[in-house]
Design a protein around this nucleic acid. Sequence first.
RNA 1: GCGGGCAUAGUGUAGUCUGGUUAUCACAUAGGCUUGCCAAGCCUAUAACCCGGGUUCAAAUCCCGGUGCCCGCACCA
Length: 500
Amino acid sequence: MKIDELYALLRRRGVLWPSAEIYGGTQGLYDYGPLGAALKRRLQDAWAAWFLGLSPDYHRIEPAEILPEAVVRASGHLENFTDAEVTCEKCGTAFRAETLLESVRPEGVDGLTPAEIGEIVRASSIRCPSCGSTALHVPRPFNMMFGVPLGVAGTERGYLQPETAQASYLAFARMWDVARRSLPLGIAVIGHAYRNEIAPRQLLFRMRSFTQAELQIFFDPAGFPVPFDRVASEELPVLRAARRDAGATEPETARATELVASGLPEFYVYHLVQTYRFLRDVLRYPAGRIRFFEKSDRERAFYNRIQFDAEVRFESLGGFREVGAVHYRGDYDLTRHTEGSGRDLAVTPTGGAKILPHVLELTFGVDRNLWALADVHLGRDGERTVWHLPPYLAPVSVGVLPLIEKEHAAVATELAESLAAAGVTVQYDDASSIGRRYARMDEAGTPYCLTVDGGTVGPGPEHGSVTLRERDSKAQERVPASDVAARLAPEFRLPRPSVR
RNA sequence: GCGGGCAUAGUGUAGUCUGGUUAUCACAUAGGCUUGCCAAGCCUAUAACCCGGGUUCAAAUCCCGGUGCCCGCACCA
């Protein structure tokens, strides 16, 4: 579906809508409705079940979302999380300083003050690429973080976290003790990040408040053992930086062992494969719509040694978009926070030497993946609109419908309540015709419907049995109502990786 | 941030150029009748000109400003 059509459908069904809608909306802010909130919760649960399932040494924490200024100063966000802009006074066009100065300063402008950038612009007599004027204005600093005053006097300054990763680095020292002083040590956080985007756009893709699910794994650079044999034969769709430099635009299939042979560490490829399996097997994105896009030396953030973006092809956005990434960040983060805090973050594992751990970061945009779940799985199926969500992700697991409201409502209500008591998310619906109710359930992604009919309440051989209707195939089957919960339970179980 | 386009019930739309009756139609929603396993039919009801200012006897319609959305540029998880 095109983006407008998909968004209209999601708004109408109450999946999501613009924040402060009655005031005309606010750029980059969205609210999730009942279906969206439920789907997002399940998506987060699925992520946690999968990635925490990789190792008993991976733990989930829930840190504060405001960072004191000293933290963002040390992390580099205060100086670097800035779009240095140069504006043309004649035509008004704005340019990113780094791009504008590429020819005279190929090493980039990181670390330079606005005044220094202005000096280079003047000295180099660069012209506006848009109109040719030399009236280029000195850049004004614009930090994308939201600053907040802390305390009544407001003398201490804090920032809404621009990424959840920092909170994990801050927690490392405490977690080292809590998790009994061994490496690897994984710290997972699902939380909000806030960025004052200049141009938020494309709905859930550029939000000013969004949700990240991140796993930071601290490990000994001398050795990060993983059960590589469990992934060795997996084939990944990758677009390597070297091939892109040679003009390639389509991903190739590479076996995990081949990626290792090409120089990538086993621990890196192992987590890349597990990320792939999460996208393909848990979120069920078709393999042909997933690719791993390697960032080249020039493209990736300076602190990353290896970076592959996990990308999904979005029909609504007309191409591949990043939904997650795997970053090998080296010791950058702990080094910065060691310097910033004055606390030595190097550790000494039992029986080993003192080391500063390296970090492997697995990061996911929760909202982006929620959009992908709509883009990939929600669509027209002939006359129907069906959201083919995996059953364990569906906001409503089972719809309970009386065939004739007057005659079957009592039994159906009772059935819905007993299922709810058994832990199944049910929705009871007795409004309008049975076909329309199935259609509504299809659109919401409800994988199963139970219909109570004459046979259910009658004295005949079908007494106590209901029609079980499956969403995708529309197939129907008679099953005893008492068996339904146990019968469907496996469908609603979150997948976990097999690691041993 | 820059440039272009757009903004009418819950959703999709007609009407805007050329100002003038009670703002069109479909679907959806709610109630009733009927039907009884895949968006059926009939009746009824609910429901909109993005916000602010200006021009005019009169503004959904023309002008200005704002806000939001889409596309391109520039960016980005």
